[in-house]
């Protein structure tokens, strides 16, 4: 700050200056107080609260008492938990397998400069505007065997009891999730593709590499961090597909689409079992954190920025 001054008195001024600056910098801490307050009260405390609640029970009039490990034992002994865990991971993995290639290819496709691609992209992103409630309600109407898509397209095999047969309901949930979330990931991949230096492709063209070779040797490796970001968001996000499944199937038929987040809600707010529901919540947090850390590790340590966002 006093770099132009080299005389002794000047230096003294400089020292005084930097002391002042330090004070100024420390005083800035006050500016974080409002954000910190909200975050502590409505995020940190609830997070601690959920852990504490998992060791409590509520009696008939709503008073909270200690329950030791009872909730944990009862939930861990409940086959419903393993059903929910299995479904959560099944939907997570299948969704990833379905959505990643589609989003990646669409991302590459929409990153192209052709007019019609830009026009298509405008329409591709429409599902991003809809709430999960709107999407679920629209698909319920769409799947009506008599007045829906099956009749409209004249394709009788689409006229199934989609919400009444476990396997069909599960498949439907995965499809609708993809319908809703592929556009978001397409957008991420589109951004990633646009960042690849074009000189790489020019060099490859001079070397005579074809389109497919270029895709596998340039596009795909260059998108490594985009893939990790998108996958992290997809995988961790899949833990919270609550609204869509709640409205579309309500977890049914039976328990065939009752994923963890839904299981937590139904236990806590329908069955009024806050203790066991809190156990499920803690499990959700642990799985989320573990997955985020695992995927972050997968990407190596040199790119903290983007991976932290992915969390």
């Amino acid at each position: 700050m006093s770099n132009a001054v080299s005389t002794a008195p000047g230096r003294a001024v400089g020292v005084k200056d930097s002391k002042q600056t330090e004070q100024r910098k420390a005083a800035l801490a006050w500016l974080t107080v409002p954000a910190l307050f909200f975050f502590l009260v409505f995020a940190v405390i609830p997070l601690a609260g959920v852990l504490i609640l998992s060791f409590t029970r509520r009696d008939g009039i709503g008073a909270i008492g200690a329950a030791g490990l009872d909730n944990w034992f009862s939930v861990l002994a409940d086959p419903g938990l393993y059903n929910a865990l299995g479904l959560t991971f099944l939907i997570m993995i299948v969704s990833w397998l379905v959505q990643t290639p589609i989003s990646l290819l669409l991302g590459v496709f929409t990153a192209g400069s052709q007019r019609y691609r830009a026009a298509l992209a405008v329409l591709y992103f429409l599902p991003l505007l809809l709430s999960s409630a709107a999407v679920a309600i629209a698909f319920k109407a769409l799947l009506d065997p008599n007045f829906g898509l099956a009749t409209g397209l004249g394709l009788p095999f689409l006229a199934q009891d989609w919400l009444g047969v476990p396997q069909l309901a599960l498949g439907l949930v995965i499809f609708v999730i993809a319908w809703q979330f592929v556009p978001f990931h397409t957008l991420i991949y589109q951004g990633g593709v646009r960042q690849i230096p074009k000189s790489l492709y020019e060099a490859a063209q001079i070397d005579g590499a074809g389109t497919i070779k270029q895709f596998f040797h340039i596009t795909l490796p260059q998108l490594k961090y985009t893939i990790i970001t998108s996958s992290t968001l997809m995988v961790v996000g899949s833990l919270t597909y609550f609204d869509l499944i709640f409205i579309l199937t309500g977890g049914g038929p039976g328990n065939s689409t009752r994923i963890l987040a839904l299981d937590m809600y139904l236990r806590g707010f329908r069955a009024n079992l806050m203790g066991p529901a809190s156990v499920i919540a803690v499990i959700l947090v642990i799985i989320g954190l573990a997955l985020a850390l695992f995927l972050q590790r997968l990407g190596g340590k040199d790119k903290q920025g983007s991976q932290l966002e992915g969390l």
């Binding site: 997070l47 609260g49 959920v50 609640l53 833990l239 937590m264 806590g268 809190s278 919540a281 989320g288």
Partner: peptide, 9 residues
Amino acid sequence: IPLQATIIP
């Protein structure tokens, strides 16, 4: 932190 997990508290 997933929001849903803290809904009960």
